[in-house]
């Protein structure tokens, strides 16, 4: 039970299949529950992190509904919808990857993780295209901002928040892709089994969380003005 016992907790744990767990835990079950609870708590902090931005958006949106509505017409709903579908699809493949890990199906883990990453990369690609488009249309907030409408100041505010929110979300996607790369390597090496799947399960929670953020971003940014 050396201090290094902890060091084997996350990375090496699965190699010794059955009841492998870090030295300060009593059982693999306790370790799994701790990891899972820790991840949930972390996601709560993430939720509060995005919460500040959601609050800012809602406050300003209700203060200047016309300007925000006019500005939101410059977003491409078709691309947004496409991205939403892509991301929901990636949540499905992620869930299947976790399930495959729990069942010890090494090949399926790899396939589903690769699919998830392709979908995630697709999302980011589309997002990058949208950003580029905004830059071309001079809709980047700051000195070069140009907007033909009644209230360019608050339209600029809309794009400010649009970039802050989707940018932070995209950053989380990029981090997620990094995490999935690690999971892919671990999965390909057969680290996961019915007895040990904490890392991929926690990565899955993270991925779903990032998806859910988008599920709220999409209607708030793209759709609010489209009714009727």
């Amino acid at each position: 039970m050396s201090p290094d016992g902890h060091a084997t907790a996350v990375h090496g744990g699965g190699a010794h299949a059955a009841a492998a767990h870090a030295g300060h835990f009593d059982s693999a079950e306790q370790q799994r529950e701790s990891a899972s609870l820790g991840m949930w708590v972390f996601l709560v902090t993430e939720l509060m992190f995005f919460g500040g931005l959601f609050l800012a958006y809602i406050v300003y949106r209700s203060a200047w509904p016309e300007a925000f509505g006019a500005a939101s017409h410059h977003l491409d709903v078709r691309l947004g919808t496409f991205n939403t579908i892509v991301l929901i699809g990636s949540s499905l493949t992620m869930a299947l990857a976790v399930r495959s890990a729990q069942l010890g199906r090494r090949q399926a883990v790899v396939i589903f993780l690769v699919l998830t990453m392709i979908l995630g990369a697709t999302f980011l690609g589309v997002k990058a295209y949208e950003y580029h488009h905004k830059a071309v249309e001079h809709l980047l907030p700051g000195h070069g901002f140009q907007f033909e409408g009644a209230d360019p100041r608050h339209a600029s505010m809309f794009f400010c928040l649009y970039f802050a929110m989707t940018g932070l979300h995209a950053l989380h996607m990029i981090v997620g892709l990094g995490i999935l790369t690690v999971m892919l390597i671990m999965g390909a090496r057969g680290r996961f089994s019915a007895a040990y799947y904490n890392p991929i399960e926690c990565s899955g929670l993270y991925w779903h969380f990032v998806d859910i953020i988008w599920i709220f971003l999409f209607p708030l940014l793209y759709l609010l003005e489209r009714h009727g």
Binding site: T45, M48, G52
Partner: peptide, 8 residues
Amino acid sequence: LGTPVVAV
């Protein structure tokens, strides 16, 4: 619950 808000 609080720290992430000041972070953002």
